[in-house]
Write a protein that binds this DNA or RNA. Structure first.
Length: 534
RNA sequence: GCCUCCGUAGCUCAAUGGAUAGAGCUAUCCCGUCCUAAGGGAGAAAUGACAGUUCGAUUCUGCCCGGGGGCACCA
């Protein structure tokens, strides 16, 4: 709808230009959006304000001209109830009953596919996230990034992208040795905590390296993967091992050779450097250390090559804010290696965990870390997920662990889930009362609350489009709350099942079905349960 | 010191340069013969400070103030 409108406006402006009402200039980007207040209709545009500036005319005059042209152009259709020009120069569109009702029909016909699109055209997306080192349990910070990225993948898939969820296991470097030392509890131990003690107790390896590798495997398989699959309910398509898939398969060597061939490296102080500054990084980076060992960064280069070899044209990387400084070198590496596609970073700011009025420092090294498991055990999967999805990644979250449990009963997720349970309950009742035998007449849906609910439903495809474009996953739970709100309000004012008014009941049941489709799909995308009963 | 993110209601957070800055929690008030009151409705409450750009700034720029996170031949 939004796109159709934008096209209509473009045409109208073009026609006005031809009639020389406007002087000749390039038509700027036309943006149709959802007004902040319902009284302003379903859609609004500020194009007249923008044009007025360029044409040096009164915005209201411009708005009127466009509005009239639009009215003339759409006389034959019944798309709009009215097109209105308001104050500074906003043009507001009010959809007709026919249009709204047509959307409900569309939802009912398309079912769970409503909102899907071919936007991505099957383009291959590699979404890499979490990728925490196999040296300890996942922290709440990993949880935040993980839920967010996982949900993004769901939305991208719905939008026609071919998405691979990937976890990069850093099992090839020095941290495995550090882990070994820690388990052996020698003078070079760095990691601590209960899990390390348990590993120490069960260790049968002898050398540091063997111990480290054994421990890393154990942590990855028994701790991290279980947390991801069972607790977080995130599914990865691939776990890429730095050691086995990148180093041992020769990708690091290949990357270094390629970079050397491109003349992007140099030797200095006994080390091999990559000129990342040529690609916007603030300093050059070491590929091979003076002791001859490859630097961690060279693994990243090999990994990029690996992703490129597999044909991904869109790479998404989720990082915690503590890795913010890596973006420069990663971008540089991708460019240096000749990656031509899109490279996106999602940086989630730290989650500050407060417990008993004091901040809990999140440090894996100290072992004093609030884990995802701990959090999910306390508040439940759905609450944890919803809570993390609700906020934009750049916000510095405050999470009060003490309040989390109390708060869980009042969490907005229950508000949304309850709406779904109510929808199901109505449908169950309808079956008992035999209301489902024929289709309801949607034209009966003229109550303001019905209209508001339909209005909310029709924004869903645009929401998906927006999220798939700018990765603003947090708009999903915001939308879910909004939709639940509209439904609860409708429920309160409009009795659905009413023996006295069977026609009305059947019409409203159609709306209930449509709402259920959209709400459950929204919850699905977020990975949150849509309960039939509560 | 340099880079980066954030300062919005009592609390946790929204708002591609536009209309009266929105929610949830908390506090106050109202709604129970009726499809689940885990609900609905009403009111109260906020853009850190100062300049600048603009017809218009929470949003862009600059400078302060306050807080988080980075600045390794560690991973």
């Amino acid at each position: 709808m939004k796109k159709i409108l934008e096209e209509k406006i473009r045409t109208a402006i073009q026609e006005l230009k031809n009639e020389e009402i406007f002087p000749s200039f390039d038509v700027p980007e036309i943006r149709v959006e959802r007004p902040k207040d319902e009284q302003f209709g379903e859609y609004t545009t500020n194009i007249a304000l923008v044009l007025a500036k360029l044409a040096k005319k009164d915005p209201m005059e411009v708005a009127e001209a466009i509005s009239q042209q639009l009215t003339i152009n759409s006389q034959q259709e019944k798309t709009f109830e009215k097109i209105e020009v308001v104050k500074p120069g906003h043009i507001n569109f009010y959809l007709s009953q026919e249009t709204l009702v047509a959307f409900v029909t569309e939802i009912l016909e398309e079912g769970q596919k409503f909102g899907s699109s071919e936007k991505g055209r099957g383009e291959k997306v590699n979404n890499e996230f979490i990728s925490a080192n196999p040296t300890g349990p996942l922290s709440v910070g990993n949880g935040r990034g993980g839920f967010y990225a996982d949900t993004l993948s769901n939305v991208l898939r719905k939008s026609g992208y071919d998405v691979t969820n990937e976890y990069y296991v850093n099992d090839g470097g020095g941290q495995v040795l550090k882990l070994g030392h820690s388990v052996l509890n020698d003078s070079e131990a760095v990691y601590g905590g209960e899990y390390i003690e348990q590993l120490t107790a069960n260790n049968r390896q002898e050398t540091v390296k063997e111990t480290g590798e054994w421990a890393a495997t154990y942590i990855m398989e028994e701790m991290i993967k279980k947390t991801i699959q069972e607790k977080m309910k995130v599914s990865f398509d691939k776990f890429i091992s730095e050691k086995e898939d990148i180093v041992e398969k020769g990708y690091v060597d290949k990357a270094i050779t390629l970079l050397k061939e491109k003349n992007l490296t140099y030797e200095s102080e006994g080390a091999l450097w990559l000129r990342t500054t040529d690609f916007g990084d603030d300093k050059d980076r070491v590929l091979i250390k003076k002791d001859g060992a490859r630097a961690y960064f060279s693994g990243d280069c090999g990994y990029f090559l690996h992703k490129m070899d597999r044909g991904f044209t869109i790479l998404i990387l989720s990082l915690g804010a503590d890795h913010h400084g890596y973006i420069g070198r990663l971008r540089a590496a991708a460019k240096a290696l000749g990656f031509q596609g899109e490279l996106h970073f999602i940086i989630s700011q730290m989650v500050k965990v407060v417990k008993d009025g004091k901040e809990v420092r999140m440090s894996k090294r100290a072992g004093n870390v609030v884990t995802v498991d701990e959090l999910i055990e306390k508040v439940g999967h759905d609450v944890a997920r919803f809570f993390f999805l609700l906020y934009a990644p750049e916000t510095h979250m405050n999470f009060d662990l003490g309040l989390a449990e109390e708060r869980s009963q009042k969490n907005p997720v229950f508000y949304v889930e309850y709406a779904h349970a109510r929808l199901c309950s109505i449908l169950r009742k309808a079956e008992e009362g035999h209301f489902g035998e024929k289709n309801g007449d949607l034209n009966l849906l003229v109550h303001p609350k019905e209209r508001e609910l339909i209005r909310e439903l029709l924004f869903f495809p645009e929401l998906i489009e927006t999220v798939a474009t700018d990765f603003s996953v947090h708009k999903l739970p915001q939308y879910a709350m909004q939709l639940a709100d509209k439904f609860h309000s409708f429920y309160n004012d409009c009795k659905v099942i009413d023996e006295e008014h069977r026609d009305m009941s059947m019409a409203r049941l159609e709306l209930v079905r449509a709402t259920k489709i959209v709400l459950s799909e929204t919850l699905n995308l977020m990975g949150i349960d849509a309960p039939e009963k509560m």
